[in-house]
Design a protein around this nucleic acid. Structure first.
Lengths: 197, 197
DNA sequence: CCGGTTCCATACGGCACCGTATGGATGGCC
DNA sequence: GGCCATCCATACGGTGCCGTATGGAACCGG
């Protein structure tokens, strides 16, 4: 009856994929090691190689899982908010706040020399830039300029992530964080023709 | 007589450090492997362990080398240009152009979980942010706001680097690159009180 | 209760890596 | 030219990793 309390005796491919995702979060793609995954799940390689053909396979499963969940999350986050300016602000706010939780993103960026990782990162990035570009278009920019601005905005986001993780330069909590986010938004919304304020 | 043509017979610690730097550029800090370094220099481990006590030692030497040269380069780059606005633009231009050459920076950002790497990255980042902040102060911002803006600008730079390397979203050559850099500068200089244009 | 499928542990070979030990080559110096 | 310090190659033990092989436990239908 209470076999669901611990590691459920039997393991599913999804369990392995999530463990791999956790490993990626902690040490990047290279730290996804079969034996370590196994021991983290209280199992051994024998189990792993029954579910997956190779190490690459579980990495791909983990990436696919991440891409799916991640995309869904951002979509549901975006789909309610009419005003482009506040939407952009909410987008940046949420995305930066979520950066603390999603510890996978930055490692994936870092390990984009791996073709599979690069594909996933490329798709996710393209999709996000597209969203931001649409928002900028709704703010009055033509498609070309909107896309340029979107790339810059997204670069600012990525750099923010990177600086938070790699240095102590960026305030991440307290009032200083709010001020900093204000600075970001001030920059991102800057010379956009704003006709409702 | 002509012993200087190939790998100079004898190796200096600096040779090993530079080889380690090259390895970092290609595969990050984890790819600094003693035997591979040796074979890339046409030598063996025996030589390495005479010059260095451990793998960590050569990594630290490489990081120190990079920090030194990198700092010098940016200093000499900055020390001639009076006007803050054009200096900021030149800074971004040069720094982004140099990003193509300096293939070490991004791997270091990525491997900043390593304490030694984190220290170096932290120092370099702090120094650069400080420079940019000073430039913003000369543009009329008070110290606090200037630093906020500097962090945002530096984040934009880092994100730009990251996106160039990890995706195909950012134009890096041709007229599109100029346009994109213009977009960056437009954003970074945006609501700064500009009293000479 | 029994046979087959599903799931997993143990044991193995192989590779890349770290660091040590030890002998040999090379170069300056008197 | 002989001696000592400098520099380097070879050989070794040890670890972590991948993937395979094979036997066994757990579960399910009859």
């Amino acid at each position: 009856m209470d076999d669901a309390t611990r590691t459920t005796g039997r393991l599913s491919p999804d369990d392995w994929a999530r463990a791999a995702l956790e490993a990626i979060a902690e040490g990047g793609v290279p730290s996804v090691a079969v034996e370590r995954l196994a021991s983290s799940l209280g199992a051994t390689k024998g189990s792993f190689y029954w579910h997956f053909a190779s190490r690459r396979a579980v990495i791909e499963a983990a990436l696919s899982l991440w891409e799916r969940e991640h995309t869904d999350a951002v979509i549901t986050m975006m789909e309610a908010e009419a005003d482009p300016a506040t939407r952009l602000r909410r987008l940046m706010t949420t995305i930066i706040a979520a950066a603390a939780r999603d510890r996978v993103e930055l490692p994936l960026l870092a390990n984009s020399d791996d073709p599979v990782v690069r594909d996933v990162v490329g798709r996710v990035t393209a999709r996000r830039v597209e969203w931001v570009a649409q928002t900028y278009q709704q703010l009055g920019l033509d498609p070309g300029a909107a896309r340029d601005r979107a790339v810059v905005a997204y670069a600012t986001y990525v750099g923010h992530l990177q600086l938070v993780r790699a240095t102590d330069q960026v305030p991440t909590t307290g009032p200083a964080a709010r001020v900093h986010l204000d600075a970001i938004m001030q920059v991102l919304l800057a010379p956009v023709p704003d006709d409702h304020g």
